Simulated scan of single mutants.
Amino acid sequence: MGFRYDEIGDRLKAFRLGSALSADEIARRIGISRTALYRLEKGELVKLETLEKLSDLLEVSVPTLLGVGIEWIPSAVSYFERTRQVEEKAEQIVVLAGPISFLLASDRFEQSLEMVLNESIPEDASDRARALADIGQIMELLRERKRVYRQRNPGIVNLISAMDIERFLRNGFIGRTFLPEKVLAERRALARAEVEHFASVIEDEPMGVQIGLVTGTLPHTGFQIFRQPDRKILTISPFRLGEQPNIRLGVAMLTSAPEALALHERSVKEMWRTALKGRAASEYLRELLASNGRSAR
């Protein structure tokens, strides 16, 4: 089989970013220059011996670096970088990630997200320093994703869960529990503003954006399907950015396996068939907002 060296380079970069090792340190430890490492990340032909050294150092299998089979991704930084790379070539993106899809989220959500991510890291977490450092990288990657999305305007199909939205409104945009009541009130206001934003997006019907509100049960693990000109790519991830986010624990995966894609596309088709759309979806969200407002009084 032929390998796409540009994509091997993409994977090397993603796993390097997720490793917490500097480019200088990686280059030194495998015996090449930093410039040579960057050339590999740009898609230059890589020797198997060098790839094996990188595999050991970055703690990722050679098949994953080569793109053979399923690509396993244990780092949120690596996952969001791989998502960014794949997204840049996609003509359409199918998103199941609740309660809020970052690409369609408001600028206010983005501005609050870093605070909530920092808040989500437990004080006694053994990897707290590393996780806090990762947040800066994740935010940079997310901002770049949104910039490119707005520039390219690929089609997007976003399935969101009514139950996730209701919980988001009730709990607020929080990174952990047991926050002071004053803070909770502020976070619930942030959540309300974001749900109002999504209701407005649905009502405005922007070109290429399709939003379906699913009132039944949805899978707890989010996934995305990226439809590129020559293939489709599926990502499944435990990492989430909404209410009570997770950027520390879990393993994401990326694959172009036909069976996996067919099964997930079948799920998307069924969820889309029963989802509320257009005016029905926006009215449902506004009723949730009104109901939540009444219960809060």
Rank of each mutant, 00 (worst) to 15 (best):
S19C: 10
A257V: 00
P122G: 11
R16D: 05
T235D: 07
V94P: 01
A133C: 01
G278L: 02
L285C: 02
L142T: 01
L12T: 13
L276R: 05
L54F: 05
S75N: 10
G9E: 11
A280R: 12
K89N: 09
V62L: 08
T274M: 07
L254D: 00
L261K: 06
P238I: 12
E265A: 02
L12I: 15
V94G: 01
G242Q: 10
V62R: 01
D134S: 14
L48P: 00
E186D: 15
G2V: 06
I236R: 14
L58Y: 07
K42N: 14
S101N: 13
S200G: 14
I233F: 03
A133Y: 00
P180D: 12
R286Y: 05
L45M: 14
S75P: 06
V214T: 02
M115E: 15
I30P: 11
D6W: 09
F226W: 12
V209I: 11
V46C: 15
M1K: 05
M253F: 06
V251N: 10
A27Y: 05
E52L: 14
R150Y: 03
R176G: 11
S256M: 09
A281P: 06
E44L: 08
I100P: 02
Q85V: 15
E283Y: 01
F102W: 14
A280Y: 01
S106I: 12
G67R: 05
R84G: 07
A105L: 03
Y284F: 13
F168V: 00
K42F: 01
H220I: 11
A275R: 01
E205N: 08
L65G: 11
F80Y: 13
E196H: 06
F198M: 12
L104W: 03
A275L: 05
L21G: 03
R286D: 13
V183C: 00
L213K: 02
E119M: 04
E259W: 05
P154C: 08
V214P: 02
G67K: 12
N153C: 09
N118V: 03
H197C: 05
D24K: 12
L104V: 01
I138S: 14
G222C: 09
E123R: 10
S78V: 02
D124G: 02
A252R: 06
F223M: 08
R227K: 13
R192C: 00
S282M: 04
L213D: 05
R130E: 15
S267M: 15
G43W: 07
L285S: 04
R130T: 12
G242P: 01
